[in-house]
């Protein structure tokens, strides 16, 4: 890894098997395993042949290489199923790549799916601590930021009420505030700016802009909202069918993406 690089991907691929994984019952798994040991054909695979493609695999991400420097804000765009979410899953370590190497400096703070790990019986404050820790903060770090988080969430009056009594809007705002105050050197934003009402959305976007511009953090941003991408990112990559087909200026990337979308619309 070079000195100024925060994140590199080298020939990263992720393969999924199509159809069913395993046979669901112990008996069939044992049959398959026994057949494999005797180097015989798998009796279950033969039976269920229709569920598999020729080799039964599908590449959600295919040989992607990428390098992101310190302080850079990279946009990742592409159509549905292009591999954006898979890429973020690999980066946030939720699943392992099938091939290739991912290296990064410091911590990756992922804002994938805001609000996971909220427990309905716990109060807002307790959930801030739990959620922060799930996302990788230490208790001392959360102590320092708790006041800011509560303030940003606009839920101060209800912070000691169990979150099961919150409105859905309050829940999302609280969750976003926790994630927005994460301390990772690399920050992943996935379509999360679309929470709350318009005022809160604007506030969130400003917060994110501030993080990216002023704090010198590295940000990866996935969005279908081109205005968000434009205002946050100077550089963009375009994914299509698991491959990286463009890497460079945001405006060009958006033009390419829009052409791709139009093409599908016609076809």
């Amino acid at each position: 890894m070079k000195e100024n690089e925060m994140l590199t991907l080298e020939h990263v691929s992720k393969e999924y098997r199509t159809g069913r994984i395993g046979y669901g019952t112990l008996k069939r798994d044992l049959q398959s395993w026994w057949a494999k040991i005797r180097k015989k054909e798998d009796p279950n695979r033969k039976l269920t042949g229709g569920w598999y493609r020729k080799d039964g695999t599908f590449r959600a991400l295919d040989d992607v290489s990428l390098s992101v420097e310190r302080g850079e804000t990279l946009g990742i765009i592409g159509r549905n199923g292009a591999g954006k979410s898979t890429l973020l899953k690999l980066l946030s370590r939720i699943t392992e790549p099938t091939e290739g190497t991912i290296s990064f400096r410091g911590r990756i703070a992922s804002m994938l799916e805001v609000g996971t790990g909220f427990h309905p019986e716990l109060t807002g404050r307790e959930n801030i601590y739990l959620n922060g820790a799930i996302l990788g903060m230490s208790k001392a770090e959360i102590d320092k930021k708790a006041a800011d988080i509560i303030d940003f969430s606009e839920c101060a009056d209800f912070i000691d009420t169990p979150v099961k009594r919150y409105s859905s809007g309050m829940l999302v705002k609280l969750a976003f505030s926790v994630a927005a105050h994460l301390d990772g050197e690399i920050l992943i934003l996935d379509e999360v700016l679309a929470v709350g009402d318009m005022a809160f959305q604007r506030k969130s976007l400003e917060k994110m802009l501030g993080v990216a511009r002023d704090e010198g953090r590295t940000v990866l941003c996935v969005s279908h909202n081109m205005d968000t991408v434009r205002s946050l990112c100077r550089r963009c990559i375009v994914l299509e069918e698991g491959r990286k087909i463009f890497d460079g200026d945001t405006e060009e990337a958006i033009a390419l993406y829009q052409a791709l979308c139009a093409e599908r619309g016609r076809g």
């Binding site: 000195e3 392992e96 790549p97 991912i102 290296s103 400096r105 410091g106 010198g216």
Partner: peptide, 23 residues
């Protein structure tokens, strides 16, 4: 590695994590 790091973030900058498929 150079030492000119952002003060607030520098602490963990040198810590490199490598993810590769395990067999």
């Amino acid at each position: 590695m150079s030492e000119e790091k952002k003060p607030a973030l520098g602490a963990r900058d040198n810590q490199i994590t490598v993810i590769r498929p395990k067999k």
